[in-house]
Protein backbone atom coordinates (compact mmCIF):
# COMPACT_ATOMS: atom_id res chain seq x y z
CA UNK A 1 0.00 0.00 0.00
CA UNK A 2 1.20 3.50 -0.80
CA UNK A 3 0.71 5.97 2.04
CA UNK A 4 -0.62 9.46 1.26
CA UNK A 5 -0.78 12.05 4.04
CA UNK A 6 -4.21 13.53 4.71
CA UNK A 7 -2.55 16.95 4.93
CA UNK A 8 -1.38 16.58 1.33
CA UNK A 9 -4.95 15.94 0.21
CA UNK A 10 -6.03 19.09 2.07
CA UNK A 11 -3.32 21.22 0.41
CA UNK A 12 -4.26 19.98 -3.06
CA UNK A 13 -7.99 20.55 -2.54
CA UNK A 14 -7.32 24.06 -1.20
CA UNK A 15 -5.26 24.92 -4.28
CA UNK A 16 -7.76 23.38 -6.69
CA UNK A 17 -10.69 25.37 -5.22
CA UNK A 18 -8.87 28.63 -5.86
CA UNK A 19 -7.55 27.65 -9.29
CA UNK A 20 -10.94 26.44 -10.49
CA UNK A 21 -12.71 29.64 -9.41
CA UNK A 22 -10.18 32.04 -10.90
CA UNK A 23 -8.81 30.36 -14.05
CA UNK A 24 -10.80 28.73 -16.79
CA UNK A 25 -9.14 25.74 -18.52
CA UNK A 26 -7.15 26.27 -21.75
CA UNK A 27 -9.69 24.43 -23.91
CA UNK A 28 -12.38 26.92 -22.84
CA UNK A 29 -10.69 29.86 -24.57
CA UNK A 30 -10.52 28.08 -27.89
CA UNK A 31 -14.18 27.12 -27.59
CA UNK A 32 -15.19 30.75 -26.99
CA UNK A 33 -13.28 31.84 -30.12
CA UNK A 34 -15.26 29.34 -32.14
CA UNK A 35 -18.51 30.49 -30.55
CA UNK A 36 -17.69 34.08 -31.44
CA UNK A 37 -17.16 33.09 -35.07
CA UNK A 38 -20.56 31.32 -35.12
CA UNK A 39 -22.61 34.02 -33.40
CA UNK A 40 -24.65 36.28 -35.71
CA UNK A 41 -26.22 38.59 -33.16
CA UNK A 42 -24.27 41.80 -32.50
CA UNK A 43 -25.32 41.88 -28.84
CA UNK A 44 -24.44 38.19 -28.62
CA UNK A 45 -20.95 38.84 -29.97
CA UNK A 46 -20.44 41.71 -27.54
CA UNK A 47 -21.43 39.48 -24.64
CA UNK A 48 -19.09 36.65 -25.68
CA UNK A 49 -16.24 39.15 -25.94
CA UNK A 50 -17.12 40.60 -22.55
CA UNK A 51 -17.13 37.15 -20.94
CA UNK A 52 -13.63 36.52 -22.35
CA UNK A 53 -12.47 39.90 -21.07
CA UNK A 54 -13.95 39.05 -17.67
CA UNK A 55 -12.19 35.67 -17.56
CA UNK A 56 -8.94 37.39 -18.50
CA UNK A 57 -9.36 40.02 -15.76
CA UNK A 58 -10.11 37.27 -13.22
CA UNK A 59 -7.08 35.23 -14.24
CA UNK A 60 -4.74 38.22 -14.08
CA UNK A 61 -5.96 39.50 -10.71
CA UNK A 62 -6.49 36.04 -9.23
CA UNK A 63 -10.12 36.83 -8.41
CA UNK A 64 -13.24 34.74 -9.05
CA UNK A 65 -14.62 34.71 -12.60
CA UNK A 66 -18.11 34.82 -11.09
CA UNK A 67 -19.23 35.77 -7.59
CA UNK A 68 -21.08 32.48 -7.33
CA UNK A 69 -18.06 30.35 -6.52
CA UNK A 70 -20.50 27.54 -5.97
CA UNK A 71 -20.80 24.56 -3.76
CA UNK A 72 -17.62 22.50 -4.09
CA UNK A 73 -18.29 19.20 -5.85
CA UNK A 74 -15.24 16.99 -5.38
CA UNK A 75 -14.61 13.82 -7.38
CA UNK A 76 -12.09 11.38 -5.94
CA UNK A 77 -10.65 8.48 -7.89
CA UNK A 78 -9.10 6.52 -5.09
CA UNK A 79 -6.52 3.93 -6.09
CA UNK A 80 -7.20 0.70 -4.22
CA UNK A 81 -3.51 0.43 -3.31
CA UNK A 82 -3.39 3.90 -1.76
CA UNK A 83 -4.07 4.52 1.91
CA UNK A 84 -4.64 7.91 3.49
CA UNK A 85 -2.76 8.35 6.76
CA UNK A 86 -2.89 10.98 9.48
CA UNK A 87 -6.60 11.69 9.35
CA UNK A 88 -9.86 10.92 7.61
CA UNK A 89 -10.07 11.42 3.85
CA UNK A 90 -13.46 13.12 4.11
CA UNK A 91 -12.20 15.55 6.75
CA UNK A 92 -9.04 16.20 4.70
CA UNK A 93 -11.13 17.18 1.66
CA UNK A 94 -13.51 19.26 3.80
CA UNK A 95 -10.60 21.12 5.40
CA UNK A 96 -9.16 21.81 1.94
CA UNK A 97 -12.45 23.34 0.83
CA UNK A 98 -12.62 25.40 4.04
CA UNK A 99 -9.08 26.77 3.55
CA UNK A 100 -9.61 27.39 -0.16
CA UNK A 101 -12.83 29.35 0.28
CA UNK A 102 -11.79 31.29 3.38
CA UNK A 103 -8.18 32.00 2.40
CA UNK A 104 -8.97 32.47 -1.29
CA UNK A 105 -11.66 35.15 -0.71
CA UNK A 106 -14.26 32.97 -2.40
CA UNK A 107 -17.94 33.35 -1.56
CA UNK A 108 -19.44 31.20 1.17
CA UNK A 109 -22.60 29.91 -0.50
CA UNK A 110 -23.57 26.90 1.62
CA UNK A 111 -26.40 26.74 4.17
CA UNK A 112 -26.47 24.08 6.89
CA UNK A 113 -29.97 22.80 6.21
CA UNK A 114 -32.15 23.25 3.12
CA UNK A 115 -35.05 24.54 5.22
CA UNK A 116 -33.42 26.26 8.21
CA UNK A 117 -30.85 27.90 5.88
CA UNK A 118 -28.08 29.19 8.12
CA UNK A 119 -24.85 29.93 6.24
CA UNK A 120 -22.06 27.58 7.40
CA UNK A 121 -19.58 30.45 6.95
CA UNK A 122 -16.81 28.44 5.28
CA UNK A 123 -18.53 26.85 2.26
CA UNK A 124 -18.41 23.40 3.82
CA UNK A 125 -19.47 20.70 3.54
CA UNK A 126 -18.47 19.82 -0.01
CA UNK A 127 -20.21 17.11 -2.01
CA UNK A 128 -17.77 14.23 -2.40
CA UNK A 129 -18.11 11.46 -4.98
CA UNK A 130 -15.59 8.66 -4.50
CA UNK A 131 -14.80 5.90 -6.94
CA UNK A 132 -12.34 3.13 -6.14
CA UNK A 133 -10.03 2.42 -9.09
CA UNK A 134 -6.92 0.28 -9.72
CA UNK A 135 -3.54 1.80 -8.81
CA UNK A 136 -1.92 3.59 -5.86
CA UNK A 137 -2.77 7.23 -6.64
CA UNK A 138 -5.63 9.59 -5.85
CA UNK A 139 -7.03 11.79 -8.60
CA UNK A 140 -8.81 14.81 -7.17
CA UNK A 141 -11.14 16.95 -9.26
CA UNK A 142 -12.76 20.05 -7.79
CA UNK A 143 -15.76 21.38 -9.71
CA UNK A 144 -17.31 24.44 -8.00
CA UNK A 145 -20.92 24.48 -9.18
CA UNK A 146 -23.00 27.66 -9.31
CA UNK A 147 -26.71 27.54 -8.60
CA UNK A 148 -27.98 29.67 -11.52
CA UNK A 149 -27.43 26.82 -13.94
CA UNK A 150 -27.95 24.05 -11.40
CA UNK A 151 -31.46 25.32 -10.61
CA UNK A 152 -32.48 24.91 -14.26
CA UNK A 153 -31.36 21.27 -14.42
CA UNK A 154 -33.90 18.45 -14.57
CA UNK A 155 -34.42 14.71 -14.56
CA UNK A 156 -37.06 12.56 -16.16
CA UNK A 157 -37.74 8.83 -16.17
CA UNK A 158 -38.54 8.13 -19.82
CA UNK A 159 -39.99 4.89 -21.14
CA UNK A 160 -37.80 2.63 -23.30
CA UNK A 161 -40.23 3.29 -26.17
CA UNK A 162 -39.32 7.00 -26.05
CA UNK A 163 -35.83 6.11 -27.34
CA UNK A 164 -33.27 8.59 -28.66
CA UNK A 165 -35.98 10.97 -29.88
CA UNK A 166 -37.42 11.12 -26.36
CA UNK A 167 -34.00 12.03 -25.02
CA UNK A 168 -33.53 14.77 -27.64
CA UNK A 169 -36.97 16.23 -26.96
CA UNK A 170 -36.51 16.29 -23.19
CA UNK A 171 -33.07 17.93 -23.30
CA UNK A 172 -34.28 20.60 -25.75
CA UNK A 173 -37.32 21.24 -23.55
CA UNK A 174 -35.11 21.72 -20.46
CA UNK A 175 -32.80 24.17 -22.25
CA UNK A 176 -35.74 26.09 -23.71
CA UNK A 177 -37.42 26.43 -20.34
CA UNK A 178 -34.10 27.53 -18.75
CA UNK A 179 -33.87 30.48 -21.16
CA UNK A 180 -31.59 33.22 -19.82
CA UNK A 181 -31.42 31.90 -16.25
CA UNK A 182 -28.37 29.60 -16.52
CA UNK A 183 -26.23 32.38 -18.08
CA UNK A 184 -25.85 31.07 -21.64
CA UNK A 185 -23.75 30.10 -23.53
CA UNK A 186 -24.11 26.89 -21.56
CA UNK A 187 -22.64 23.42 -21.52
CA UNK A 188 -25.31 20.71 -21.43
CA UNK A 189 -24.41 17.59 -19.48
CA UNK A 190 -26.71 14.65 -20.20
CA UNK A 191 -26.73 11.36 -18.34
CA UNK A 192 -28.81 8.48 -19.66
CA UNK A 193 -29.35 5.05 -18.16
CA UNK A 194 -28.55 3.51 -14.81
CA UNK A 195 -31.07 4.38 -12.14
CA UNK A 196 -32.21 7.87 -11.12
CA UNK A 197 -29.10 8.79 -9.11
CA UNK A 198 -26.72 7.30 -11.66
CA UNK A 199 -28.19 9.38 -14.49
CA UNK A 200 -27.79 12.55 -12.40
CA UNK A 201 -24.18 11.73 -11.56
CA UNK A 202 -23.38 10.95 -15.22
CA UNK A 203 -24.84 14.31 -16.25
CA UNK A 204 -22.63 16.10 -13.73
CA UNK A 205 -19.55 14.09 -14.76
CA UNK A 206 -20.20 15.00 -18.40
CA UNK A 207 -19.49 18.62 -17.44
CA UNK A 208 -15.89 17.65 -16.60
CA UNK A 209 -15.13 16.40 -20.11
CA UNK A 210 -12.72 18.68 -22.01
CA UNK A 211 -14.11 20.90 -24.77
CA UNK A 212 -13.76 19.48 -28.27
CA UNK A 213 -14.03 15.85 -27.17
CA UNK A 214 -17.00 13.87 -28.49
CA UNK A 215 -18.33 10.66 -26.97
CA UNK A 216 -16.21 7.72 -28.18
CA UNK A 217 -19.44 5.81 -28.88
CA UNK A 218 -20.74 6.76 -32.34
CA UNK A 219 -24.47 6.69 -31.49
CA UNK A 220 -23.88 8.97 -28.49
CA UNK A 221 -21.60 11.32 -30.46
CA UNK A 222 -24.39 11.54 -33.02
CA UNK A 223 -26.91 12.27 -30.27
CA UNK A 224 -24.67 15.07 -28.95
CA UNK A 225 -24.59 16.67 -32.42
CA UNK A 226 -28.33 16.33 -32.90
CA UNK A 227 -29.16 17.92 -29.57
CA UNK A 228 -26.63 20.73 -30.02
CA UNK A 229 -28.06 21.63 -33.40
CA UNK A 230 -31.61 21.73 -32.04
CA UNK A 231 -30.67 23.65 -28.91
CA UNK A 232 -28.90 26.31 -30.95
CA UNK A 233 -32.03 26.81 -33.06
CA UNK A 234 -33.97 27.90 -29.97
CA UNK A 235 -32.67 31.45 -30.44
CA UNK A 236 -31.87 32.00 -26.76
CA UNK A 237 -28.28 33.09 -27.48
CA UNK A 238 -25.64 34.60 -25.16
CA UNK A 239 -27.29 35.78 -21.91
CA UNK A 240 -30.65 34.91 -23.42
CA UNK A 241 -30.80 38.13 -25.43
CA UNK A 242 -31.18 36.30 -28.74
CA UNK A 243 -28.60 34.59 -30.92
CA UNK A 244 -27.24 31.36 -32.35
CA UNK A 245 -24.92 30.29 -29.55
CA UNK A 246 -27.14 29.03 -26.74
CA UNK A 247 -24.92 26.06 -25.94
CA UNK A 248 -21.21 25.60 -26.48
CA UNK A 249 -21.44 21.83 -26.27
CA UNK A 250 -23.75 18.94 -25.45
CA UNK A 251 -22.09 15.95 -23.79
CA UNK A 252 -23.85 12.64 -23.31
CA UNK A 253 -22.73 9.91 -20.91
CA UNK A 254 -24.50 6.56 -20.70
CA UNK A 255 -24.66 3.52 -18.43
CA UNK A 256 -26.51 0.21 -18.70
CA UNK A 257 -30.03 0.38 -17.36
CA UNK A 258 -33.04 -1.72 -16.41
CA UNK A 259 -35.11 -3.47 -19.10
CA UNK A 260 -38.03 -1.21 -18.21
CA UNK A 261 -36.31 2.15 -17.88
CA UNK A 262 -34.68 5.09 -19.65
CA UNK A 263 -33.68 7.69 -17.05
CA UNK A 264 -32.45 11.02 -18.47
CA UNK A 265 -30.77 13.71 -16.39
CA UNK A 266 -29.84 17.14 -17.74
CA UNK A 267 -27.28 19.14 -15.77
CA UNK A 268 -26.75 22.64 -17.10
CA UNK A 269 -23.52 24.55 -16.68
CA UNK A 270 -23.02 28.27 -17.29
CA UNK A 271 -20.21 29.56 -19.51
CA UNK A 272 -17.83 29.42 -16.54
CA UNK A 273 -17.17 25.69 -16.96
CA UNK A 274 -14.97 25.53 -13.88
CA UNK A 275 -13.00 22.50 -12.79
CA UNK A 276 -9.44 21.74 -11.80
CA UNK A 277 -7.73 18.44 -11.14
CA UNK A 278 -4.54 16.96 -9.79
CA UNK A 279 -3.27 13.44 -9.23
CA UNK A 280 -1.20 12.62 -6.17
Amino acid sequence: MREIAAERVTEVVERLCITACTKLPEDWWEQMDQALAREESEVGKEILQLLCKNAEAAREAGVPICQDTGMAVVFLELGQEAVVVGGSLTEAVTEGVRRGYVGGYLRKSVVDDPLIRKNTGDNTPPIIHTEVVPGDKIKITVAPKGIGSENMSALKMLKPADGAQGVVDFVVEVVDRAGANPCPPIVVGVGIGGMMEKAALLAKKALLRPFGERSPRPHLADLEERILEKVNRLGIGPQGLGGRVTALEVRVEAYPTHIGGLPVAVNLQCHAARHAEETI
Partner: peptide
Protein backbone atom coordinates in the same frame (compact mmCIF):
# COMPACT_ATOMS: atom_id res chain seq x y z
CA UNK B 1 -29.56 41.22 -7.04
CA UNK B 2 -26.06 40.14 -6.05
CA UNK B 3 -24.20 38.28 -3.35
CA UNK B 4 -20.63 39.50 -3.77
CA UNK B 5 -17.42 37.65 -3.03
CA UNK B 6 -15.38 38.96 -0.09
CA UNK B 7 -12.91 41.73 -1.04
CA UNK B 8 -9.28 40.71 -1.37
CA UNK B 9 -6.84 43.11 0.32
CA UNK B 10 -6.76 46.24 -1.84
CA UNK B 11 -10.18 45.56 -3.41
CA UNK B 12 -13.38 47.52 -2.68
CA UNK B 13 -15.49 44.43 -3.21
CA UNK B 14 -14.97 40.93 -4.57
CA UNK B 15 -16.51 39.70 -7.83
CA UNK B 16 -20.06 40.99 -8.04
CA UNK B 17 -22.19 39.93 -11.00
CA UNK B 18 -25.98 39.54 -11.04
CA UNK B 19 -27.79 36.51 -9.66
CA UNK B 20 -30.97 34.95 -11.11
CA UNK B 21 -33.77 37.46 -10.48
CA UNK B 22 -36.64 34.99 -10.67
Amino acid sequence: YVGPCPAKPGQVIGSAGPTTSG
